[in-house]
Simulated assay, not measured.
Amino acid sequence: MTLDDLVRLRRARDRIDREYAQPLDVPSLARTALMSPGHFSRSFRAAYGETPYGYLMTRRIERAKALLRRGDLSVTEVCMAVGCTSLGSFSTRFTELVGESPSAYRARDHSAGAAIPACVARVGTRPVRNEEARPDATPLA
């Protein structure tokens, strides 16, 4: 993979980070990276360790966790706010990545993590698939 490819992939990843709540698909992200959809998907996975869709959903769940910690929105409102259109799919993916349902996560007391700066909390609370979780990791929130 060339440096130019990595720059174009980064541009697409940055777009996902910015526009996670918008409808995004592989063909439009591939156009952002100036690649064919197949080449983009393979290159993205090689560069970042997950598919473009997987990265998008991880970003959405990461944002959903922050909204749920605030506690002023319902799970359905959070689902729609992060760009998911199906509450069932959102809840399934959230549970897969976080290890508990969105309702259970929202109901938990998050005051212990309130003093942690957001930039630090983001690293410690980034959703990962359950089988990818390190056994020595301690959750921050």
Rank of each mutant, 00 (worst) to 15 (best):
Y105I: 01
V75L: 06
F94C: 09
G71K: 07
S111P: 01
P102A: 11
H110S: 05
T92S: 13
R59E: 14
A133C: 08
L56W: 09
P127A: 10
R60T: 00
A118F: 04
S103A: 15
R60A: 02
G54E: 11
P102T: 03
R129V: 02
C119H: 14
S86V: 03
K65H: 05
L73V: 00
L67N: 04
R63Q: 14
C119Y: 14
Y55H: 13
V75E: 10
R70I: 08
A115W: 05
E132D: 14
E132G: 00
T125D: 15
S86P: 02
G113R: 07
A107C: 02
A107K: 11
A64E: 06
C119L: 13
V98N: 08
G113F: 09
Y55M: 06
E62A: 14
M57W: 13
H110V: 09
E132K: 11
G88M: 06
V120A: 08
P135A: 15
M80V: 13
P117H: 05
P52H: 06
V82F: 03
T125W: 05
E96Y: 03
T51V: 00
E96K: 12
G88N: 13
V75T: 07
V98C: 13
P135S: 14
R122M: 09
E96L: 11
A107F: 05
E131F: 12
G54C: 02
G71H: 06
G99Q: 12
V75P: 00
L56Q: 10
G54P: 06
A115Q: 10
L73I: 00
G49I: 11
A104S: 06
L67G: 03
C79Y: 03
R108G: 02
V75C: 03
E132L: 14
G99A: 09
V98Q: 12
T51I: 03
S74R: 10
D109Y: 09
M57I: 12
A115H: 12
V98G: 10
S74W: 05
R106H: 11
P127W: 08
R93T: 15
V98L: 12
R106V: 01
S74E: 12
R106M: 12
A64F: 06
G71P: 04
Y55A: 13
D109K: 07
A115P: 01
T51C: 01
A66D: 14
R122P: 01
E62T: 02
P117A: 11
R134L: 15
R60E: 02
G88W: 04
A114Q: 15
T85R: 15
A104F: 03
V78M: 04
P117Y: 10
S74G: 15
C79K: 05
T95V: 01
V123M: 10
R129I: 04
E132P: 00
S86Y: 10
Y55E: 05
S86R: 10
R129N: 11
L68G: 01
C119K: 12
A118R: 13
E131Y: 11
T51E: 06
A104L: 09
R69L: 01
A64N: 05
R134W: 11
L68R: 03
S89P: 00
R70A: 10
R60H: 07
A107L: 11
V75A: 07
L67D: 08
D109Q: 07
A118L: 13
